[in-house]
Design a protein around this nucleic acid. Structure first.
Length: 439
RNA sequence: CGGGGCGUAGCUCAGCCUGGUAGAGCGCUUGCCUUGGGCGCAAGAGGCCGUCGGUUCGAAUCCGGCCGCCCCGACCA
């Protein structure tokens, strides 16, 4: 993409409305614009990141055996009366009426819908287990939206729902999601640590929040440093095998949010040099909740002897739009965003420092075509601006690599390649640029 | 929902106390200049001063209602 043609309204100053760094940077980098409190429009750059995140989530869900569906944003009140939650939910739920006066709502979550879909389509224990997910916009009318997309009222979320014949099966489904989540966040360049969460009325230990570490995180977290060093992407995962040992490996070490933190236990279990107290942002939550919805909504299957079985359910969420902000919180510097390659809107930023110079522009055009031809996503800054403005914009939007072409380097047949993370620069021959990003 | 603050140009803000018909910097447009970190000079464009009403000869400015946004707290993916 040529930057001269791209819709990238960057801001030089911090908008007064934005307080935290990810919100400021997303506005300044031209990723989003606020439409109302907690409601945002996604501009091209931001939307590319959102889709990249969505893509990783989808791949890992599919790999784990979950199947994608798409449920509506608008649901009927009747459905929620069936589960008993219509009156229980409170003013967070956006309630609306259609032209016939029927009570509708903009879905804050999807347990009811999925349960009816399951109920209508699955009649036998032989059809279990099932795990269905979707990635859809949700709305919760928060009293006080803030932090940009980190805590908006409208947000994009991946949520899925597992149905199993018994608790053991539900645990297997839970473990699959546990591992899929570890992989999902790791692929985004994040250190996500599973922490025991409140389990509500069901009890037990099958509920974890996935918290990523970021200095500006909203809650304090405490954990064993060993968790941060663990690597999931290097492991071969067989989702058909017993994942319990793997899950145990991650849950054996101490990890707690401030609500559940027990300082005495922390000190007893974790050696001093491994005690990590940091700040974190919740980006995912997995939850086993048994028959809370299947029972009241009469989602029953027949067992081997014809007896009714009420499936054991679990639900699993990832805040997709929140992740965009969360990644920035975890990865930025004074100059701007530093995208991990896996989610970056473009991989390479190509800077033409002197568009007036025919030789420089020719070299840039060739590199641009060469990179694009090899499938490298490249944003080519061909605008007629001073070099300083280009550097500033490029650092702000945080593409992982900058290829800088100016008259000086070009005279020596060199391009300068700068890594946005760390800022290391190297001069390489022009003809090495394309291979560098394709080999 | 309790407490606090703010709505003036695309962005950041001044002006408001002490009413007299609107300003700065950045951004934008044009020209010159410049070309490795938001350069310089010059000339421009751009605002029903959130909205409705009141007071007044006259309201961005004073008074009231409404709307919107932000911050702290409680709450939350």
């Amino acid at each position: 993409m040529r930057l001269s043609q791209y819709f990238l309204p960057t801001l030089r100053e911090n908008p007064a409305e934005a307080q935290i760094v990810s919100h400021r940077l997303m506005l300044r980098a031209g990723m989003i614009r606020q439409q109302a409190a907690g409601i945002y429009a996604w501009l091209p750059l931001g939307y590319r990141v959102l889709r990249n995140i969505e893509h990783i989530v989808r791949e890992e869900q599919d790999a784990s055996g979950a199947q994608e569906v798409l449920m509506p944003t608008i649901q009927s009140a009747e459905l929620w009366r069936e589960s008993g939650r219509y009156d229980a939910y409170g003013p967070e739920m956006l309630r609306i009426r259609d032209r016939h006066g029927r009570e509708m709502l903009y879905g804050p979550t999807n347990e009811e819908v999925i349960t009816t879909i399951f109920r209508d389509g699955v009649k036998s224990y032989r059809d279990l287990p099932k795990n269905l997910y979707h990635i859809q916009w949700k709305f919760r009318d928060e009293v006080r939206p803030r932090f940009g997309v980190m805590r908006g009222r409208e947000f994009l979320m991946k949520d899925n729902y597992s149905f199993d014949i018994d608790k053991a099966g539900a645990t297997r489904s839970y473990n699959k999601m546990f591992v899929a989540y570890l992989r999902t966040f790791a692929r985004m360049g994040l250190k996500a640590i599973p922490m025991q969460a409140e389990t509500g009325p069901i009890g037990g230990d099958l509920s974890h929040e996935f918290i990523i570490l970021a200095d500006t995180g909203e809650s304090a977290v405490f954990c064993d440093r060993g968790l941060v060093d663990k690597d999931i992407l290097g492991r071969a995962i067989d989702y058909e095998a017993d994942l319990q040992p793997l899950v145990n490996e991650w849950t054996a070490l101490y990890a707690a949010t401030d609500e559940k933190h027990d300082q005495a236990k922390f000190e007893a279990e974790v050696p001093p040099d491994r005690r990590l107290s940091a700040r974190g942002i919740e980006v995912g939550h997995i939850f086993y909740f048994g028959t809370n919805y299947s029972a009241p909504m009469n989602a029953v299957v027949s067992g081997p002897k014809g007896e009714p079985i009420i499936p054991e359910m679990g639900s699993y969420g990832i805040g997709v739009s929140r992740l965009v902000g969360a990644i920035i919180e975890a990865s930025h510097d004074d100059a701007g965003i530093i995208w991990p390659e896996s989610v970056a809107p473009f991989r390479v930023g190509l800077l033409n420092l002197k568009p007036d110079d025919a030789a420089v522009s020719r070299a840039c055009t060739e590199l641009y075509a060469g990179l694009k031809g090899k499938g490298v996503e490249v944003l080519y800054d061909d605008r007629d601006l001073r070099p300083g403005a280009k550097f500033a914009d490029m650092d702000l939007i945080g593409l992982p690599w900058q290829v800088i072409i100016g008259p000086k380097g070009l005279a020596a047949g060199k391009a300068e390649v700068k890594a946005r993370a760390g800022g290391q620069r190297e001069e390489i021959p022009l003809e090495s640029v394309v291979p560098k990003f394709t080999s």
